[in-house]
Design a protein around this nucleic acid. Structure first.
Lengths: 181, 181
DNA sequence: CCCTCCATGTAAGTCGTTACATGATTGT
DNA sequence: ACAATCATGTAACGACTTACATGGAGGG
């Protein structure tokens, strides 16, 4: 249900085409709310039919620029402020951690070390993105910055947790952890 | 695709019925991998058809106790160690943060404060669960403990981030944050 | 006897992904 | 000319949710 709200939210910031929106989902929003090209176009059609967006202009190559309507703004506002957000109900990595007892401790250890590496890599990416971005002081930039900071903190937490988890695993095996550094 | 693997993973730890598994998803695993009753039963049938689990015993009230087969163990192991886990591609709360520029700053502020409250409440729940649980020293308990610790760290991070975010918002409004405490 | 919990299943519908299909425009 | 990018759409399938439907067993 939320891709529609994401589309409304992006269109609330200004008119855009399906192609523009699709690129936003594949870049800026890729770790926040991902969507396929296919889904973007079908949901735009549905929002149009529902009267929450409308075609503002048509350009070359069949380009359709959409804009949000008043009904769309009302729906967006309602969803944003009056509907309780749902926390994530699934985390594939965490599921695997929970099931790690079904493989050998050495294999579990490698798995955890791989998680640490992935988390550090993503953390570096976020830091680099933060540094290279010139954050203007408008509201748009502010909330983008808050979102990115969340990613930085999440990945830092994940890396720290992985290190701790490997240590706990080693402890449980009655073996001192002397592999790091 | 992963509910099947979750089922295999749980059955790798010992035989269980659909009802048993369903309860695990609604309790222990509710923040890790949630599933509805409906889905558990349909996927158990599919795993049975695929030869990855089999009916070990039938009990009263039509109860079917399933057990994992060798083919099932192979598939579980393959998924666990050879398939790269996918990071979460969607975070509804974060999507809303990103779109918070479309409402008034006061409303955005309330939204962030509400996130902090939710994060603190869940953190307390995890801490309480950790304290009341008697962690035996087998492998099963170890990985459950690692998972719970992740939840504790995530919720702590989330609460801290919320406080920071409110401060950033206040800063951007050129107004000193004197509302907290 | 009745309520709660145990226990399983099906049907309809939504959401999301992958693959297919097509074509215009711009830059080199 | 050719490649890359812009630009939109549909079809098939898989994952997941909600609702419907049924009934046995055990405890008070």
């Amino acid at each position: 249900m939320s891709l529609r709200h994401a589309l409304l939210g992006l269109l609330a910031r200004g008119p855009a085409s399906g192609y523009d929106l699709m690129r936003t989902f594949n870049t800026t929003l890729s770790h926040v709310w991902s969507a396929t090209q296919s889904q973007v176009y079908t949901d735009l059609t549905r929002l149009d039919t529902a009267g929450q967006i409308r075609i503002a202009a048509e350009g070359p190559r069949g380009r359709k620029t959409y804009e949000i309507t008043d009904a769309g703004r009302r729906e967006l506002r309602h969803w944003l402020l009056e509907v309780e957000p749902e926390g994530p109900r699934r985390n594939e990595t965490l599921l695997r951690v929970f099931l790690l007892g079904t493989v050998e401790p050495d294999e579990a250890r490698d798995f955890l070390l791989a998680r640490e590496a992935v988390a550090r890599r993503r953390h570096e990416e976020y830091v680099a993105l933060d540094e290279k971005t010139e954050w203007s002081d408008n509201a748009l930039a502010l909330y983008g910055r808050l979102t990115l900071e969340w990613g930085k903190r999440l990945t830092a937490m994940h890396a720290d947790w992985s290190v701790w988890a490997v240590a706990e695993l080693d402890k449980a095996r009655g073996k001192t952890s002397m592999k790091r550094d």
